[in-house]
Amino acid sequence: MSQLLSEFRRPELLQIVALTLRVTGAALLLATLSGVPIGALLGLVRFRGQRVITLALYTGMGLPPVVVGLFVYLFLSRGGPLGPLGWLFTPAAMIVAQAIIAFPLVAGLTMSAVAGVDHAVREQVFALGASRWQSAWTVLIEARVGVTAAIVAAFGGTISEVGAVMLVGGNIEGQTRVLTTAIVLYTRQGEFAMAMALGVTLIAVAFGANVLLLRLQGRLRDR
């Protein structure tokens, strides 16, 4: 136990946590900014081919992260179409992969939340003379609990993901080593105390981030 505690004092721990939050945070913001509007649109509007898109989104929610990692790897590799960017084995590649993993979760769950808003609300808003954008915004506000849940789910999915970031990031010390890949490394080396310390940290970070998000959700709900 004392050994476990001393592992927390390792200087690299803080750096790994910081990088994890930066990568997951950036990926989550990208996924939220693209996923929430698209999810809301799909929840509000009816059009041809919508079912196909919905199906694709739901499939995407269950997409194996390591497959996403493989595709991103091949795209960003020097031999791939985006090779000249030189993003492979950098945090940028990890952000791209995690954003792709998070996007279907955000969009799909937002769509469900928006679709679940009472039709009466929308009609009421229209009756009050709101524009299309205003009414969409209002419906989104009504669905805020579900939308926050979508973001929380996406956060949990990305911060705990290991296969894709290992592939595209390369687990480079000080550059692309995040909590999950570090846990894999230390377990491989038989340094279970350090692996455990990182695991506890990961859970704590996830817990803390969820508390923050839920408090935001709570504040929104209380209004």
Binding site: G86, W87, Q175
Partner: peptide
């Protein structure tokens, strides 16, 4: 921006 800057630095 940070991600881009980082990618730039890496290459």
């Amino acid at each position: 921006t940070a991600a881009l800057a980082e990618a730039q630095a890496a290459s």
